[in-house]
Nucleic acid binder design. Structure first.
Lengths: 233, 233
DNA sequence: AAGTGGTCTAGACCACGGC
DNA sequence: CCGTGGTCTAGACCACTTC
């Protein structure tokens, strides 16, 4: 075993990655423990630890105390999605952002929603429908419910002037959330709002957020046809 | 300032998160430096560093040498997607996985593909179309190109017996990739393969992978209607 | 019981980037 | 210049898991 001086955890990541892709350490194989690698690479155990920890976070290694570190058999690659505010998406492309409130109502949510989202049944919530425009062209249509039991102030906000997404980000922080993406055929109303043909395929994001156990808001966003969500591996 | 003993970086993450959401440290604000926080929390600087680093990786803090650490104004939340192989997705739900090769050809790719993917024009590549089944029902349809200049062995593999995805994962590792998700209306052929009506909305994943600079494979996967991709924030 | 990774510490040096 | 975060080190203790 040659002792090569690899001082940074980045170098070690690359070297380990190399050994994985070239199958020096084939899938399923147990690799040497941190202490041995530290000796081999001429660095401290903490540095090896950081390199291996990050590789395991990206799904390439599997680590267990006492059992050691293994190369994952069928790597489940992790891709990071950046969920930005729609306004930013639009402005990043050099387009002008526009916003229109379509509907506002303080009503009881459908039972399905109350069930799946965990809000008390029989309580009114704020329901908003709005359109996001890019250079005056429909970009996304959103259908949102806000838990006004928890955020009563939302009832007094003029959501025709303030984008609900941005108001909530600044006024009702959440601790965790839950997102799903899918594809649906635009129904009659949706296609009218987005100015597309009925049944056109639209990309959908469903998001629910909570502050600890308390539901904050849930929103379904339909993006105009052609929308792509992009990331790297 | 009270000195509270917070020994773990997890505790510190929670505490800092708490201060962000309760606006003890409002958006845009500069927070104390690592050394001060280490004193306040009664732990070492390295521990504070790990907590703050992780929070900055999830998009809540912004750190710059000399400038210090700030609470991000409009947090762009990072969500992690797990991209698993289709077989696992299906079997995880307790369904039986099936696979059918529909077409195989060693031909020149369309010019658009060569351009966007960076392969030399005028070279033949392996083109595969296949169907993934869940309990014998179409689950996803894939249209794939494999760079046989780089992986000549792929020409000798019987892809009617071996799933291309899995063969490639095990035989042609990649160093990086690029994924996009979108929604499209199924065309006549696609809807026939997936056994749905024409123009039904399908969820699409386009993926390209490279080994260093060399293209490995590119695939477009169309998922049967109803498919959802899920993650947490 | 013993081996492994998970984490913390105290101290150090360095790179970046405002000043 | 010099304050800040970024990283590394050597050592330590602990938690988990397999044996």
């Amino acid at each position: 075993m040659t002792l090569v001086k690899l001082n940074s955890f980045q170098d070690i990541k690359s070297e380990v990655l190399e050994r994985i892709t070239t199958r020096t350490w084939p899938p399923g194989e147990l690799i040497p423990n941190e202490e041995l690698l530290a000796v081999e690479f001429g660095c401290s155990r903490a540095t090896v630890n950081r390199a291996l920890r990050e590789l395991s976070e990206s799904g390439l290694l599997e680590r267990k105390r006492k059992a050691g570190t293994r190369v994952v058999l069928n790597p489940v690659r992790k891709a990071t999605l950046s969920i930005s505010i729609i306004r930013d998406d639009i402005e990043k492309r050099g387009c002008t952002y526009g916003y229109v409130l379509l509907e506002r109502a303080h009503i009881m949510p459908p039972l399905v929603l109350a069930k799946t989202w965990g809000v008390a049944a029989g309580r009114k919530m704020l329901h908003l429908k709005a359109l996001h425009l890019s250079n005056s062209v429909p970009y996304a249509y959103e259908d949102r419910w806000i838990n006004t039991e928890h955020i009563p102030r939302a009832l007094e906000v003029d959501f025709s002037a303030h984008n609900a997404n941005e108001w909530l980000v600044q006024n009702a922080p959440f601790t965790h959330g839950d997102i799903a993406f899918s594809a649906v055929n635009a129904d009659a109303r949706e296609s009218e709002y987005l100015d597309v043909r009925e049944r056109d395929a639209v990309f959908v994001m469903d998001r629910k957020t909570w502050h600890d156990q308390t539901p904050i808001t849930t929103v379904r966003v339909l993006f105009a046809p052609g929308h792509r969500m992009h990331t790297t591996l």
